[in-house]
Amino acid sequence: MALTTLKKKRRIQVIAIGMMALVVSTALIGYAMRDGINFFRSPSQVAEAPPAPNEVFRIGGLVADGSLLRGQGETITFAVTDGAATIPVAYTGVLPDLFGEGEGMVGTGRFVDGTFQATEILAKHDESYMPKEVVDALKEQGVYQDPNAGVATN
């Protein structure tokens, strides 16, 4: 009988240790990802409910025509729009080669004093690509035009 209770105790200990390891690993994963999760917002969503200045998020849309200003030191300013709202953006750094007015972009950063302060800018990588989040936001506003419309594919 003593052997049976020893086996039960050992089994309970192994299960308890396993559960604790699972809880600790889940907590560590959550802690590690806290800065890596950036929510996507369209310019309309930012205009309707501006996020807190300390919240990092992603914004995407089209670079508004006539808004790209270079040559003000290292900072480049432009506006991103989804057709319904336009948000000014300031970025210090080198823009991607395919970045331009009227093109799709996604930026990561913070919304401070009415301007999106970008720390990273991503642009489309070919003639027809646009990030899914940007396409969805533009479709919501009714301004999305499919660049592949009328193009036959095999």
Rank of each mutant, 00 (worst) to 15 (best):
3 L>V: 14
10 R>K: 14
12 I>Y: 09
14 V>Q: 10
15 I>E: 13
16 A>S: 12
18 G>E: 09
23 V>E: 04
23 V>I: 15
23 V>W: 07
23 V>K: 00
26 T>V: 12
27 A>S: 13
27 A>L: 15
28 L>F: 05
29 I>Y: 10
29 I>T: 13
31 Y>T: 06
32 A>R: 12
32 A>E: 08
33 M>Q: 14
35 D>W: 01
35 D>V: 00
38 N>P: 02
41 R>V: 02
41 R>P: 00
43 P>I: 05
45 Q>S: 14
48 E>C: 00
52 A>V: 07
54 N>R: 10
54 N>S: 15
56 V>G: 02
57 F>P: 04
57 F>K: 10
62 L>M: 10
63 V>Y: 10
67 S>M: 09
70 R>E: 09
71 G>N: 03
72 Q>Y: 07
73 G>F: 08
75 T>R: 08
77 T>S: 15
78 F>S: 09
80 V>M: 07
82 D>M: 08
85 A>G: 02
85 A>V: 07
85 A>R: 05
86 T>N: 10
88 P>Q: 03
88 P>W: 12
93 G>M: 02
95 L>E: 04
103 E>K: 15
104 G>N: 12
104 G>A: 15
105 M>F: 05
108 T>H: 09
108 T>W: 01
111 F>I: 11
112 V>K: 10
113 D>N: 15
113 D>T: 11
113 D>F: 05
114 G>V: 13
117 Q>V: 14
119 T>W: 00
119 T>A: 05
120 E>K: 14
121 I>T: 08
121 I>M: 14
122 L>V: 09
122 L>H: 13
124 K>T: 15
127 E>R: 12
127 E>F: 06
128 S>W: 01
129 Y>P: 01
131 P>H: 04
131 P>S: 03
132 K>S: 15
132 K>F: 11
133 E>P: 01
133 E>V: 02
135 V>H: 04
136 D>P: 00
139 K>Y: 01
140 E>I: 00
141 Q>S: 10
143 V>L: 02
143 V>Y: 06
144 Y>E: 06
144 Y>Q: 04
146 D>P: 05
146 D>Q: 04
149 A>P: 00
150 G>I: 02
150 G>K: 02
151 V>R: 14
151 V>H: 08
152 A>C: 01
153 T>M: 09
154 N>S: 05
